[in-house]
Design a protein around this nucleic acid. Sequence first.
RNA 1: GCCGGAGUGGCGGAAUGGCAGACGCGGCGGACUCAAAAUCCGCUGUCCGCAAGGGCGUGAGGGUUCGACUCCCUCCUCCGGCACCA
Length: 863
Amino acid sequence: MAARSGSWCPRPGSSAGPLPGAPSPRIIVVHRLSAIACRHDWRPLVEACDFRGMEARWKPFWEERGLYRTGSDPDREPFYCLDFFPYPSGAGLSVGHCRNYIPTDVISRRMRMGGRNVLHPMGWDAFGQPAEEYAIKTGIHPSIVTRRNTDTYRRQMKLIECSYDWSREIDSSDPAYYRWTQSFFLLLFDRGLAYEDENDQMWCPACRIVLSNEEAAGGCCWRCGGEVTRKRLKQWYFRITSYADRLLAGLDGLDWPEGIKAMQRNWIGRSEGAEVLFRVEAPGGLLVDLPVYTTRLDTIYGATFCVVAPEHPGLAGITQPERMEEVLRYASAARARSDRERLVSAEREKTGVFTGSFALNPFSGERVPVWVSDYVLSGYGTAAIMAVPAHDERDHAFARRFGIPMIEVIAPGGVPRGVEEAATTADGILLNSGEFGGLDSETARERMAAKAEAGGFGRVAVRYRFRDWLVSRQRYWGAPVPMIHCSACGAVPDRNLPVLLPPVESYEPDDTGRSPLARAADWVETSCPVCGGPASRDTNTMAGFACSSWYFLRFASPWEKERPFDPESVRYWLPVDLYVGGAEHAVMHLLYARFWTKVMYDAGVIDFDEPFTVLKNQGMLLGADHQKMSKSRGNVVTPDEMAERYGVDALRLYILFMGPFEADLEWSEEGIAGTSRFLKRLWALVLESPPGDGAPADASFRRELRYQLAKTVKKVTGDVDSFQFNTAVAALMEFVNFLAASRDRAPSASDDWRKAVSDLLLLLAPMTPFIAEELWHRLGFEGCTIHEQRWPGWSEADLVRDTVEMAVQVSGKVRGHITVPSEASEEEIREAALSSPRIREMLEGRKPVRIVVVPRRLVNLIV
RNA sequence: GCCGGAGUGGCGGAAUGGCAGACGCGGCGGACUCAAAAUCCGCUGUCCGCAAGGGCGUGAGGGUUCGACUCCCUCCUCCGGCACCA
């Protein structure tokens, strides 16, 4: 076998006919003489397909040409194709990450070939805990570790030939970047959307950090999975809840996966209900208003007690002296328990303590006891409820436990169901409800709210489940909160940006919730920008999600020094046309970024209020053992080893081919071996193509060839554009199989054959850039790159065939086939079917009672 | 419990309401080889049959239709998310 690594230059002595409009192709064909001597089936053999040689050859060629520079041709439409901002972890990329980066790369390349200016950038969400943990252990500054990790990521992304415009690379931990993160913090502060509040925070004792609600979903830390406890701390918040309705409404217009939109709706958790005042007879004859929030105002005549959360600020005020000790003991015990503990124990049995006080139901005038229990949450509604055991499962469980009576006030479908065994939670007809008896639930809610409103003891109220975004962190490796605390002026913005991270002795956080920055005394001590008096810097840093809430804007003009971005560039490129990443950010990054975008829109900084027009989530890639890939399981496969063994093209093609983009799939090394084989067959097909001389023209074959080509171009174009890469690859394989099977007839269709092969390479170019370029040049297209060619088109006329084969069914079962002209009328088709010998046999003389003809598909004879 | 998504050969997966299983993997048989690997050719849902051919088949059960993997209803299983939010 003639192995000729190192040179792709055409050799003298081999030649082939010219491609239309192209320089003369020169093809290397090495005849194995022994084979000719021994065998009659003469087959030329070509040099081996050497992927390493190709990669070494083309990388510098493209680099030199600046192939991946962002397009700036003013006549072209922009296309912004963006990957989620990666945190560069020390482990580097696995093939799992490739399921994100390779498809977006294919789309970017396809869009460039489609004549679009493409912005396809990459950068690093570089602030974050792992680098800091490492710094704590080793004393090495996090920026050094981060640099090491980003170098690895960049190297691997280049290895798999992602076509990023590296001149636009950004790093969120660079002061040139984070000064703008800080400036946006101040923008929010100036607009009243950033505020400080002292509260019981979710605290992860393992990470020694506070968590936002999104980060502590389910009572577990999103990073370490550990149990979340509470800690009372003063922290910075962004008022995201004031954008709740717009965040909700904006979802409708987005081309995002329904699941992600549903998760956001769910998380925001809008509910419409009513706030009603119960008047509590507090100690000392005082009457205290206790507002409760309910979505079931229609059940209020069934309220037999009230419950306040242990954290309720009015709890002590409404507790009778003789119950005080017990109530306070209960409340502080509840506060001491983690959310998780509270949840778990609540599943077993409800707990609570009677306050000794009674409240008046404003509708029924009934006197009901007021309890304290941890099943009422402090952060939602008014932290107090009216309990209707007959029609709420939780209240039912509580009432049963403590022997509190129940009153049935709703009859679903007009039929009382009885409520001793279980609560009836459905809507229905009201009973035992005074003047509202006989109304349906919905009408009752409206009328009752109106009455409460008129009487001044209630009103309709909308509540949201999500809370404001807790953004400050007690950690070193983040963007410092650019605020100064002055005893005279309060919290004052520091507009002298950037506020640089100071050098510190140790990166260790402590258990008090104070950041390591607090120990940098020289840095902390400063003067107040307003009054000039002594003041201290805020020692919190911002959560990483602040950095990733605007990075997509920075990519439009990352070189800007005096402003975060050039408005003109942002207007040109944004919003992002295609945004791709994992589904795990559904309610964190994706919600925060939408919020910042809306704030910037309101501030007149940008002219759109949704950042990501189309969102797609790639599926997870599991190891060959069906387990999530992880270092500890030892099932991680890296692109490096796969590129080494099979080449980058084979890896890229396998990632695309292995299954649907959104599906969770398992890695299989047999699979990548398959795409590697396919590329070798392609290589042989193109290089072994017989020269186009001698053979007489074969018109019917040429038509067939054109048909197959048009079909393939159409299919691949449609599939790639709709993210169905797996079926696009399958169509390319089918086409190669077709060409290989009909190679003997190639000389009789030489121009069409060359067109077919060069279009095939163009279709492959975005997926397998190396082999496509190599074969493109070997086909004779020299002095240009395949990656700057136009995406091929097809002619609908080529898709029309003379005859079609149709299935003939007898009573719905396929019993034979007929071949008819593709333009045949229904009548002709019917005739052809009925006169087919095989069908006549199947009919056994029976006459069809009905004949259904679907032109070009099938005939169904019903007997 | 609620919200999303998915159930098709030995495996990954294809199928605008119109011939289920494209394409690939694996397996079996053959060619080439001293041999193996690689490569090439053929077969490969399942059952009955020497064969021609036929029966059965898309998680289960109903329904709509000439015709259902596809649409409707009921149910089961798996994956992801949320979960005492009143």
